[in-house]
Simulated assay, not measured.
Amino acid sequence: MTSSAGRSPSARARDARWRGALAVLEEMRREPGITRAVMAQRLGLTTGSATEITARLRELALIAETPAAASGRGRPTTVLHPHPDGPVVVAADIRQEDWRIAVTALDGRPRIAEAGTHASREPGRVVDVIAAAVRRVREHHGDRVRAVSVAVAATVRHGGVVQSAALGWDAVDLTALVPDSRLPLLVGNDATLAGAAEARYGAATGAATALHVTIEVGVGGTLVVDGRPVVGATGAGGEFGHLPFGDPALRCPCGATGCWDLMVDGRAIARHLGEPPPRDPRSYAQAAVDRAAGNGLVRSAVGRAASGFGRGLAGLVNAFDPDIVTLGGFAEPLRAAAAAEFDTALADGLMRFRRSDPPPVVAAVLGGDGALHGAAVTALDGVLTEEGLSAWAAERTG
């Protein structure tokens, strides 16, 4: 490894220039529509330095500037935007029933390009359909596409899908989603990526340690520490739904018994009502919540699921000691529909010293787009590096 002290003056100057550029781009990403004046103030840049850096970023098609609305006295300033010819990443979200493809510029906000419902959950057919959509996006944007990032409702290990109870998959190869082998392919669990996005842009912004828990088909989530999800040794961490918080007599599709998954989603509600397992547990659970107010049996079944959720969440709080807990997917509607049962189970499950000052439990603000945002975050983190900007600049000037 070469130390910075051992680098040539020109190399050190180049790195310093990229550091300033990266800082500006991160501010634009953190607050789309930020003005150059506010950006310079936050970064402690002089007017001259801010002008020099933004001029270079414009030349490289990384930012565009438009006049800011006048606001009293003071020098006029500009609003920073991603350049219309600048780099983008493709984010994909593969869910139990459907899929979506989004294009994300340097402001970090996904914009849906294509979407569809699975005609079949057979892995090869799903991959083929989504791969075709990614190819169309790549053909439209050309070499501006710098990476493809996929959020999938599955356990992800070493960057690949190894199992998905939601989709009925075992190991599935997703490399066909990348139309060009030179493009990086990033694959992550949807709940993990949603938690990362909530910590970066959502309800947990600023928290040193945030716990994100979501219910779709079962329970997923992640612990985010200093903005980074804790994914374990192989990337398969955060499988909260497979903690043995449930009935040991019940076998989960994952192969284990007693999984928490089976106690909190639509499958649990159907079981309490004596009905067969639903094909789409998420939609079934939401329909049950909608019916609960006028049906005592359904209300009781929803309450039992909320109680099971609160009890398990208490265990996670005891284990991880988060500053804040964010709830995504069906988790927040379930809590709201049976607040008394949830609150009682959560309080009873907390260690005594925590009960007087438990972490706030709040709804995620990115909603159903959390996984897409998280996929975009992951991809842009790779693009917005000294190496990533150097590669882009070389292509632009080559």
Results as ranks from 00 to 15, higher is better:
residue 104 T to S: 11
residue 94 I to S: 00
residue 154 A to K: 06
residue 110 P to V: 15
residue 162 V to E: 15
residue 159 G to M: 10
residue 156 V to L: 12
residue 145 V to L: 05
residue 150 V to S: 05
residue 159 G to S: 12
residue 160 G to T: 15
residue 115 A to M: 15
residue 130 I to P: 03
residue 136 R to M: 06
residue 100 R to V: 05
residue 157 R to L: 14
residue 114 E to C: 10
residue 136 R to F: 07
residue 150 V to I: 13
residue 87 P to A: 02
residue 122 E to I: 08
residue 99 W to D: 00
residue 170 D to E: 14
residue 90 V to A: 00
residue 104 T to I: 11
residue 73 R to W: 00
residue 134 V to H: 03
residue 93 D to P: 00
residue 90 V to S: 02
residue 98 D to C: 01
residue 160 G to Q: 12
residue 108 G to E: 11
residue 82 P to N: 06
residue 112 I to D: 14
residue 120 S to Y: 13
residue 81 H to M: 04
residue 159 G to V: 10
residue 136 R to G: 14
residue 143 D to R: 10
residue 72 G to F: 09
residue 125 R to Q: 12
residue 74 G to M: 00
residue 138 R to K: 13
residue 71 S to I: 08
residue 88 V to I: 07
residue 115 A to Q: 15
residue 99 W to R: 03
residue 88 V to Y: 02
residue 128 D to H: 11
residue 123 P to G: 09
residue 147 A to S: 14
residue 128 D to K: 12
residue 168 G to Y: 08
residue 71 S to Y: 04
residue 143 D to F: 02
residue 107 D to P: 10
residue 169 W to N: 08
residue 118 H to Q: 14
residue 140 H to N: 07
residue 169 W to E: 06
residue 123 P to Q: 11
residue 71 S to G: 10
residue 120 S to I: 13
residue 169 W to Y: 07
residue 175 T to I: 05
residue 77 T to H: 07
residue 136 R to K: 14
residue 85 D to S: 09
residue 105 A to Q: 12
residue 167 L to W: 01
residue 153 A to G: 14
residue 163 Q to G: 03
residue 71 S to W: 03
residue 124 G to M: 02
residue 77 T to M: 04
residue 143 D to I: 01
residue 117 T to I: 15
residue 151 A to D: 06
residue 71 S to R: 15
residue 142 G to C: 07
residue 167 L to Y: 03
residue 145 V to H: 03
residue 96 Q to P: 00
residue 118 H to I: 11
residue 173 D to N: 11
residue 92 A to N: 05
residue 116 G to L: 14
residue 91 A to W: 04
residue 106 L to I: 13
residue 123 P to D: 08
residue 76 P to D: 05
residue 164 S to E: 06
residue 99 W to A: 02
residue 93 D to G: 03
residue 109 R to Q: 14
residue 83 H to L: 03
residue 125 R to D: 11
residue 174 L to A: 07
residue 129 V to P: 04
residue 102 A to H: 06
residue 131 A to G: 08
